[in-house]
């Protein structure tokens, strides 16, 4: 089992032999500001959720741009930004073997257990 160790774009571009799409030429981007992923907590008490990405020179700028782009209508009370290259992602090619072990463990779900009707709300 190997993990993809790097992810350069929001959502991932494959880097190895997963098909003909590998051949897509990467263009020169050395003048670009790095890419950041943006996560927004929409309301106190909820998780941060991925909302999109943007380019920024540093974390402070990424934060301000994220505010301007993703929370113009009070969509958030808290923002995380992380440089996209630091995100590690699982590999769709290995999804089957990776997630398969969970498939036959139905006893992990409450509905597996048949109890008398008298036992309410358990």
């Amino acid at each position: 089992m190997s993990f993809k160790q790097q992810k350069y774009f929001y959502g991932d571009i494959p880097e190895d032999n997963t098909g003909e799409n590998m051949s897509s030429p990467k263009t020169e981007t050395k003048n670009e500001w790095p890419l950041w992923e943006v996560f927004v907590r929409s309301k106190q008490g909820l998780d941060h959720k991925h909302v999109g990405s943007l380019h920024a020179a540093d974390a402070a700028m990424a934060m301000e741009n994220a505010r301007d782009v993703y929370t113009r209508r009070q969509e958030g009370v808290s923002i995380w930004v992380v440089e996209s290259k630091h995100i590690h992602a699982s590999n769709p090619e290995e999804a089957e073997s990776f997630y398969e072990p969970a498939a036959d463990k139905i006893y992990r779900h409450p509905g597996f257990y048949q109890l008398p009707d008298e036992v309410n709300h358990m």
Binding site: F9, I13, S24, K26, T29, E32, L54, D68
Partner: peptide
């Protein structure tokens, strides 16, 4: 101003999703 600012945001969302396909913003 609010409308025009929205359109800038729309451009950005879309450039970002095109970038996931392997093209670059600069390009």
């Amino acid at each position: 101003i609010a409308k025009v600012q929205d359109e800038a945001g729309h451009g950005l969302y879309l450039y970002s999703s095109a970038e996931t396909l392997g093209t670059s913003r600069d390009e």
